[in-house]
Simulated scan of single mutants.
Amino acid sequence: MFYWLYLTFASTEYVPVLNLLKYQTTRTGLAIVTAQFVVVALGSRFIRWMKAKQGKGQPIRTDGIERHVLEKSGTPTMGGVMILAGLFSGVLLWADLTNVYVWAVLLVTAGYGILGFMDDYAKVTKQSTAGISGRVRLVLEAAIAMAAIALIILFAAKPPESPELLTSVTFPIFKQYFVDLSWGYLLFGAFVIVGAANAVNFTDGLDGLATVPVMIAAAAYGLIAYLVGNYVFSTYLQLHFVPGVGELAVFCGALLGAGLGFLWYNAPPAKIFMGDTGSLALGGAVGTIAVATRHEIVLAIIGGLFVAELLSVVIQVAWFKRTGRRIFLMAPIHHHFEKLGWSESTVVIRFWIVSIMLALLGLATLKLR
């Protein structure tokens, strides 16, 4: 909205200060502050309201860590609503709303947030850890992801030097090499987005465990979006130039700010859980940004923690069905370490450290060309 004011009035002599809004860095900083303020301002009242509405709060797995059942029972869920309120406020106020990449990521974020809300609502009302059908949810997630990718392919500006880039898979380290999948990219991109959403969903099992790694990934991809969307920087670093995608730096800033605001209430002991409302939406957003910036494979590095959490569940289930035995003491893998005797805070902080290291490693690929 404010970017529109810049476009409308900045050329006049009456409001020259609006010229600051032409800089993505300025609007990214303002989006961080706005999103954080909205979440913190909503927090206490929203949590009280959710406690009154949800009664027993989010159901806790009875086959899990015993102390979790005792300590976390009664904690309300659907805190993702707070995150999305801050995120959307920051984006809608400070981003360029004529940018197709902004709307594509907003589409996935909102769509996945609604799916997560439906899942959380089913769990709370039924007082069961089983929400809506997994197959139904995956189909809807894939449909939303492909709709967003189609939006980008059809309406985003084509890179002048390689117009087929919008339907191509790029690779880290290699300079200008990419594989054009044509419309088959819809399936690949949907796989990335759906995988990212569910990986973050599996990670969200301890207080603050998913929040900070998502913020780290958002910060990393905010920098990537800014560099890839800037012709000078992308040329210098020998990256694929994607015109217009730099505006996603503002989205990443809003996501970072919303995460900071939510962490104020989600830090151990959590006053509220983000639930599927938050984890699916945030994971889907990060996955869509990875697709938009053409750094999908790098997401496996920057979001390596999420990949490990997802794989631990897949491996555990597959191996148990095959042999009747478990590889991990409990999946997702953060519970495995708890079973080994690590305290919750130890697991969370060490996983944060791993996330920072992986993000730095992923960013290093920008220069290794």
Rank of each mutant, 00 (worst) to 15 (best):
T129G: 07
R27V: 01
S11H: 14
F2D: 09
M274I: 04
H295V: 05
L206K: 04
T235H: 11
S234Y: 00
F178W: 10
W319C: 12
H68R: 05
L92N: 00
A219E: 03
S234A: 08
T323L: 01
G116M: 01
A318T: 14
G341N: 08
A122P: 05
N230R: 00
G111N: 02
L368V: 11
L84T: 01
A196F: 02
S343D: 12
I327E: 02
L361N: 08
A110W: 10
T203S: 15
Q24S: 13
T98N: 13
T28F: 00
G74H: 04
M82K: 03
T26Q: 04
L340T: 13
T75V: 11
A130S: 14
L30C: 03
F117C: 08
K367G: 12
V81D: 04
E141C: 13
D204F: 05
T167D: 03
G57L: 06
Q54K: 09
V245Y: 02
L305K: 01
F2W: 13
F233M: 14
Y112E: 07
S355K: 01
K158P: 08
L20F: 14
S168K: 06
M1P: 14
A52D: 11
W342A: 07
G184L: 12
G113D: 02
E13A: 14
L299D: 07
M50I: 13
F37G: 08
A220C: 01
V179Q: 09
V214R: 03
I152L: 11
H295P: 02
I144C: 06
G80M: 00
G184D: 07
D96G: 08
S345H: 13
V307I: 11
Y101S: 01
L7Y: 13
I173S: 07
G113H: 00
A254W: 03
V100Y: 04
I297L: 14
L70V: 15
A300I: 11
F320D: 09
L360C: 10
A85Q: 01
D204Y: 05
P76K: 02
G304M: 03
R369V: 09
K53V: 13
F241A: 09
E161Y: 12
G205M: 07
A210M: 00
A147M: 12
V286P: 07
L42N: 04
H335F: 09
R67M: 13
L256F: 15
G189I: 01
A196E: 05
G134I: 05
Q316M: 06
G116L: 00
A156N: 03
A85M: 09
V232P: 09
K123P: 05
V192Y: 03
V100K: 02
E13Y: 12
P160N: 01
F337M: 06
G64T: 06
D120N: 10
Y112A: 06
V39R: 00
K175Y: 13
S133E: 10
G29S: 04
V108I: 11
G64V: 07
I173F: 15
I327F: 03
A218D: 04
